[in-house]
């Protein structure tokens, strides 16, 4: 299984955020995007998740065994800035909904709701409405969503924002476990994130050539 990105370019409004970006990831590898605010990290991740149409290029997930290419979006989890959980429903209802709605892609199975909650060390709050949880607990629960349904690729945008150090270490450990089972990770982060087999991509942000041809 390989993730291939070729010649990606993306606009945001009228601005060209990045152009001709290519990278590839093998099983167990992670791509870590760094760069200052507004440099296009989130844009690249949204392009990877299929939520923004790239101006050029393609992203494919190539299965060596079956020699078939998949749309990356269908084989990926996306954890954005927002948690995609409903405040009015209990944590269990939220996770159970996503478990059945997302389903598993070929090659793996998600764990049960209880196991996922235990993995983020929050199994005792499953019966509470999601809105009652603290911001850090909500983020951890949103992360548990990645465990209940299997996807080979995780696309995570600032996964450890609003988390304390121990929780940060917990999520990093879960991501490493995912990698050790052959999963891939695309992550954007400000904080250092300890993953395995890391490739780094420094986003420079808005680039354009002006009329005289200077690269700014």
């Amino acid at each position: 299984m390989r993730l291939l990105a070729e010649n990606l370019s993306a606009h945001r409004g009228e601005d060209l955020i990045f152009s001709n970006l290519s990278f590839s990831l093998a099983e167990g590898e992670a791509l870590l995007l760094t760069g200052r605010n507004g440099s296009g990290k989130s844009t690249l991740l949204r392009v990877a998740a299929g939520l923004l149409r790239p101006a050029s290029g393609s992203l494919r997930l190539w299965y060596d065994e079956t020699r078939r290419a998949y749309n990356l979006a269908e084989a990926a989890h996306y954890l954005g800035h927002r948690n995609a959980m409903k405040m009015e429903l209990t944590v269990r209802e939220n996770l159970a909904f996503w478990q059945s709605f997302l389903g598993n892609t070929e090659g793996g199975r998600g764990v049960s709701v209880l196991e996922a909650a235990a993995a983020v060390e929050l199994e005792q709050v499953l019966h509470l409405p999601f809105g009652y949880l603290s911001a850090g607990q909500q983020r951890r629960m949103a992360f548990a969503k990645l465990l209940v349904a299997y996807r080979p690729v995780w696309i995570v945008d600032e996964p450890t924002a609003a988390l304390d150090i121990s929780a940060e270490a917990l999520l990093a450990r879960l991501m490493r476990e995912h990698q050790s089972q052959g999963g891939m990770i695309l992550a954007a982060t400000h904080q250092p994130l300890e993953l395995l087999n890391v490739k780094r991509l420094e986003m420079k942000g808005f680039v354009y050539t002006n009329a005289e041809g200077h690269d700014l």
Partner: peptide
Amino acid sequence: SLAITKFS
């Protein structure tokens, strides 16, 4: 032809 960049 769909590969549109800023200037083209």
